[in-house]
């Protein structure tokens, strides 16, 4: 059965798959962040939350891989056939967290950015895409609530607040970069496959970040992303995934995976 995406112009069809693969791969790396850092949780509810958010993230990744498998990708190749140059995760998550506050800021920015991108597909003509976007939102609702709880704890300590501000300074420009150059045309919106133009989604993301960080005296206004020569628009990242991170996130044994 053909879907609106299957019959779309080739460029738009490819662009939609690219953006969803960027969300899926970012969720793959995010899920691994939760798994790797779980023992750094401060209490039993942290362990439950991080393991829960880990499995939810993997679930979102695999739902998107399955959808991509119906179009121009192979599920097997996506999950355990790719090298580090093919992974399209947000480079915000490339450097490991430096401390707990950095972990909370990084995972929150990644959740907020991926939800922002997914929210642009809530009314997608392909019902599967719209359904995946909605499910990502329903799960992100509680992931963001978890981060908001931690923000309240961090806010109560000057020292922890300072670590949070340092993390935002390092990570926020990388989150912004994920949305691409401000002047880039949004062909996906023009083709009717994204609900709102990407600059509007990006502006909304900045608004959410500014609002959440207001209690910390962080003014996110005027922060701009920079784009290096090896920026890859189709992957929304710069260069390949770092080797050590790839070693963490890749499937270790294809035979077991089957």
């Amino acid at each position: 059965m053909s879907t609106p995406v299957a019959t779309a112009e080739p460029a738009a069809r490819t662009a939609l798959q690219n953006d969803l693969l960027c969300v899926a791969d970012t969720k793959l790396v995010l899920g691994n962040w939760f798994a790797e850092c779980v023992m750094n949780g401060k209490s039993l509810p942290d362990f439950a939350a991080m393991l829960g958010m880990c499995t939810a993230s993997y679930g979102q990744t695999r739902a998107i891989y399955h959808w991509l498998d119906t179009l121009d990708h192979s599920y097997g190749h996506l999950e355990h056939g790719r090298g580090r140059a093919e992974i399209r995760s947000m480079d915000l998550l490339d450097p490991a967290p430096e401390n707990w506050q950095d972990f909370i800021v990084s995972t929150w920015l990644a959740e907020q950015a991926t939800w922002s991108m997914a929210s642009g597909f809530l009314r997608n003509p392909d019902r599967t895409v719209a359904g995946i976007a909605r499910k990502i939102g329903e799960e992100a609702y509680f992931h963001l609530k978890y981060a908001a709880g931690w923000f309240r704890i961090i806010e109560a300590s000057d020292e922890e607040g300072e670590l949070l501000r340092a993390s935002v300074t390092r990570r926020f420009p990388l989150a912004l970069r994920w949305f691409g150059p401000l002047d880039a045309a949004d062909d996906l919106h023009a083709a009717g496959l994204r609900d709102d133009p990407l600059p509007d989604i990006r502006a909304g993301f900045v608004g959410e970040v500014r609002s959440a960080l207001k209690p910390f005296g962080v003014d996110a206004t005027g922060v701009e992303a920079t784009f290096e020569a090896d920026w890859r628009p189709d992957a929304r990242r710069t260069g390949p995934l770092p080797e050590r991170l790839f070693e963490v996130i890749r499937f270790k044994d294809q035979e077991i995976a089957r």
Partner: peptide
């Protein structure tokens, strides 16, 4: 799950 979503960024900018 109560079908609640976080604010949709493009609608709240």
């Amino acid at each position: 799950w109560r079908h609640r979503l976080p604010p949709v960024p493009a609608e709240n900018r």
